[in-house]
Design a protein around this nucleic acid. Sequence first.
DNA 1: GTCCTTAATGAACGCTGTTCAGTAAACAGT
DNA 2: ACTGTTTACTGAACAGCGTTCATTAAGGAC
Lengths: 205, 205
Amino acid sequence: MGAVERRARERTEFRELVLTAARKIVLRQGFEALSMRKIADEIEYAPGTIYLYFKSRDEIAQELCRRGFEDLLASLAPAAAIRDPAKRLTDIGERYVRFGLEHPETYRMIFMEDPKFADSVFGEKEPESPGARALQFLVEAFDELRAQKRLRVRTASPKLADALWVAVHGIVSLKLTCPGYPATPADELTAIVRSALFDGLLKPG
Amino acid sequence: MGAVERRARERTEFRELVLTAARKIVLRQGFEALSMRKIADEIEYAPGTIYLYFKSRDEIAQELCRRGFEDLLASLAPAAAIRDPAKRLTDIGERYVRFGLEHPETYRMIFMEDPKFADSVFGEKEPESPGARALQFLVEAFDELRAQKRLRVRTASPKLADALWVAVHGIVSLKLTCPGYPATPADELTAIVRSALFDGLLKPG
DNA sequence: GTCCTTAATGAACGCTGTTCAGTAAACAGT
DNA sequence: ACTGTTTACTGAACAGCGTTCATTAAGGAC
């Protein structure tokens, strides 16, 4: 009898229903406006029902973060096709900033709210948390640059990757928080940071 | 008769009482735990009373931001004594990062929450909002470098100032949101960013 | 002493996350 | 087909939130 399987399927279907509704609310009204009662209204169930499928509001938010981060990774993926590691890093940076500005609510949720939400992306000690995977992408590019003897610093690749990450994150998060500041457009900031980092880190030519 | 003056004084005294209590709560329990009822409890007044002195919770939060930013500015001030503009910029960056990490709740409140809070620092169209004043501090240093012909880029000083700002902000805000990431310690990140920016922007020597 | 302005209250409204006793429907066993 | 049990779901309830407002108590003026 497939009763057990059917229940499992219905369970994931209901979770999907909730997450879809939650995502819709976050996109339309912002993360802070996400409430269990609004989700319940949206899917036409009583508020209590959601707690039969999710432990808490935080679990829903964390799942949204996990998926949002997957979206971010997917938007960076095309850069992998670029052979030259320096150009690849540039492309990743530009894509990262673009994603953040085009999906402000998603980006806020992952990188600017409570640490416990970011935990769902970076937290798990697994060797391969989604966040660690993304960073590895950067680390490899720096390793390639080093192998090609194009780096003029001895700084370890993971540290260079972190530095690049904080820089692009700074651009996105400041733009999302301070309306009107920084006055310089995001793409110009990205270009300045890129040129400064690369002219500073790479050998001429 | 000084009745009018006395009322005005009592008014600012009560506001001060509220703000002090609010600050205490934010520091002890975090910004999200700040509530009108907790403030009322702390100062031993009814919740409604606070509304006779503040328009809303947001007004209190904005005033806390304004003061928090003044504290940040004050913590950067000693850097002004440094003659060499490059060393001055380095010192400002280090002080900025240190302030952010040592006052996480204050920093969060100003730069990572709702844009309306940051508005109290950067918003007003006055020529001299606190935020604009702070940025001017950076702009002047870059202007000095340019006057000394030590810059190897033509990029306008305000844009270079913005770029430096987003970089240090990136370090602080990522450290505050992602526990454990970036793995590289903040001071190392600061050093990498500094060296990359300066080696990239400044002429050798 | 009376009047009037002002300060302060605390109950109320509608919202929040979360829990839980109660109900109704689906299923299993005979 | 009927009973017994498991399951899904509800909606009322609790504690807390920001905010408003009619009501009360106190202070100053004449």
